[in-house]
Protein backbone atom coordinates (compact mmCIF):
# COMPACT_ATOMS: atom_id res chain seq x y z
CA UNK A 1 0.00 0.00 0.00
CA UNK A 2 1.54 3.33 -0.98
CA UNK A 3 2.28 5.54 2.00
CA UNK A 4 1.24 9.17 1.97
CA UNK A 5 2.31 11.72 4.58
CA UNK A 6 -0.33 14.36 5.04
CA UNK A 7 0.96 17.69 6.36
CA UNK A 8 -1.53 20.34 7.44
CA UNK A 9 -2.02 22.32 10.63
CA UNK A 10 -5.81 22.13 10.32
CA UNK A 11 -7.08 18.90 11.82
CA UNK A 12 -10.23 19.28 9.78
CA UNK A 13 -8.32 19.26 6.50
CA UNK A 14 -6.25 16.29 7.61
CA UNK A 15 -9.31 14.36 8.65
CA UNK A 16 -11.03 14.96 5.38
CA UNK A 17 -8.05 14.21 3.22
CA UNK A 18 -7.04 11.14 5.21
CA UNK A 19 -10.51 9.72 4.80
CA UNK A 20 -10.39 10.14 1.04
CA UNK A 21 -6.95 8.60 0.77
CA UNK A 22 -7.59 5.60 3.02
CA UNK A 23 -10.80 4.91 1.17
CA UNK A 24 -8.77 4.80 -2.01
CA UNK A 25 -6.21 2.37 -0.76
CA UNK A 26 -3.44 4.55 0.59
CA UNK A 27 -1.87 4.28 3.98
CA UNK A 28 -1.90 7.70 5.56
CA UNK A 29 0.25 9.33 8.21
CA UNK A 30 -0.34 12.84 9.44
CA UNK A 31 1.91 15.69 10.51
CA UNK A 32 0.68 18.99 11.84
CA UNK A 33 3.50 21.29 10.82
CA UNK A 34 6.70 21.34 8.78
CA UNK A 35 8.92 20.30 11.66
CA UNK A 36 6.67 17.38 12.45
CA UNK A 37 6.70 16.47 8.75
CA UNK A 38 10.49 16.40 8.54
CA UNK A 39 10.69 14.15 11.59
CA UNK A 40 7.95 11.83 10.37
CA UNK A 41 9.45 11.71 6.88
CA UNK A 42 12.62 10.16 8.25
CA UNK A 43 10.71 7.66 10.32
CA UNK A 44 8.02 6.66 7.85
CA UNK A 45 9.73 7.14 4.50
CA UNK A 46 6.46 7.86 2.70
CA UNK A 47 6.05 7.46 -1.04
CA UNK A 48 4.51 10.88 -1.28
CA UNK A 49 4.08 13.98 0.85
CA UNK A 50 1.09 16.30 0.62
CA UNK A 51 2.38 19.56 2.06
CA UNK A 52 0.38 22.55 3.23
CA UNK A 53 2.13 25.92 3.05
CA UNK A 54 0.95 28.17 5.85
CA UNK A 55 1.70 26.39 9.11
CA UNK A 56 3.06 27.30 12.55
CA UNK A 57 6.52 26.23 13.78
CA UNK A 58 7.87 25.45 10.31
CA UNK A 59 6.13 26.41 7.09
CA UNK A 60 5.73 24.18 4.06
CA UNK A 61 8.40 25.85 1.96
CA UNK A 62 11.10 25.34 4.59
CA UNK A 63 9.91 21.78 5.12
CA UNK A 64 10.31 21.00 1.39
CA UNK A 65 13.91 22.18 1.50
CA UNK A 66 14.59 20.18 4.67
CA UNK A 67 13.06 16.99 3.31
CA UNK A 68 14.92 17.36 0.04
CA UNK A 69 18.14 17.58 2.03
CA UNK A 70 17.37 14.26 3.67
CA UNK A 71 16.04 12.61 0.52
CA UNK A 72 16.64 14.29 -2.84
CA UNK A 73 14.22 11.81 -4.40
CA UNK A 74 11.33 12.81 -2.13
CA UNK A 75 8.06 13.31 -3.92
CA UNK A 76 6.29 16.30 -2.51
CA UNK A 77 3.04 17.84 -3.71
CA UNK A 78 2.20 21.29 -2.41
CA UNK A 79 -1.30 22.07 -1.23
CA UNK A 80 -1.93 25.69 -1.87
CA UNK A 81 -4.65 28.25 -1.69
CA UNK A 82 -5.17 30.73 -4.45
CA UNK A 83 -2.90 33.70 -4.03
CA UNK A 84 0.11 31.71 -2.93
CA UNK A 85 1.47 31.45 -6.44
CA UNK A 86 4.91 32.80 -5.54
CA UNK A 87 5.35 30.45 -2.64
CA UNK A 88 4.30 27.44 -4.68
CA UNK A 89 6.70 28.46 -7.41
CA UNK A 90 9.52 28.63 -4.86
CA UNK A 91 8.50 25.24 -3.54
CA UNK A 92 8.61 23.73 -7.02
CA UNK A 93 12.04 25.22 -7.51
CA UNK A 94 13.05 23.78 -4.16
CA UNK A 95 12.08 20.39 -5.47
CA UNK A 96 8.36 19.89 -4.95
CA UNK A 97 6.91 17.89 -7.83
CA UNK A 98 3.47 19.40 -8.24
CA UNK A 99 0.73 21.29 -6.50
CA UNK A 100 -2.99 21.11 -5.89
CA UNK A 101 -5.24 24.02 -5.16
CA UNK A 102 -7.57 24.23 -2.19
CA UNK A 103 -10.43 23.69 -1.85
CA UNK A 104 -9.53 20.18 -2.89
CA UNK A 105 -11.46 18.32 -5.47
CA UNK A 106 -11.22 14.64 -4.61
CA UNK A 107 -10.60 13.55 -8.21
CA UNK A 108 -7.75 16.04 -8.52
CA UNK A 109 -6.01 14.87 -5.38
CA UNK A 110 -6.37 11.25 -6.40
CA UNK A 111 -5.21 11.76 -9.97
CA UNK A 112 -2.24 13.79 -8.79
CA UNK A 113 -1.19 11.22 -6.24
CA UNK A 114 -1.70 8.44 -8.74
CA UNK A 115 0.69 10.11 -11.14
CA UNK A 116 3.47 9.87 -8.63
CA UNK A 117 2.87 6.68 -6.73
CA UNK A 118 0.43 4.74 -8.88
Amino acid sequence: MPKVLLVDDAAFMRMRCAKLLTENGYSVDEAENGQDAVEKYQKIKPDLVLMDITMPVMDGLTAVAEIKKIDPEAKIVMCSALGQQNTVMSAIKAGAKDFIIKPYQPEKILSTIKRFVG
Binding site: A10, T54, A81, K102
Partner: peptide, 13 residues
Protein backbone atom coordinates in the same frame (compact mmCIF):
# COMPACT_ATOMS: atom_id res chain seq x y z
CA UNK B 1 -2.93 35.60 9.17
CA UNK B 2 -2.70 31.86 9.63
CA UNK B 3 -5.98 31.70 11.52
CA UNK B 4 -7.83 33.49 8.77
CA UNK B 5 -6.03 31.57 6.06
CA UNK B 6 -6.89 28.20 7.57
CA UNK B 7 -10.49 29.25 8.04
CA UNK B 8 -10.62 30.18 4.39
CA UNK B 9 -9.28 26.85 3.24
CA UNK B 10 -11.50 24.81 5.50
CA UNK B 11 -14.68 26.74 4.81
CA UNK B 12 -14.12 26.54 1.07
CA UNK B 13 -13.63 22.81 1.45
Amino acid sequence: FRASHTLKGSSAT
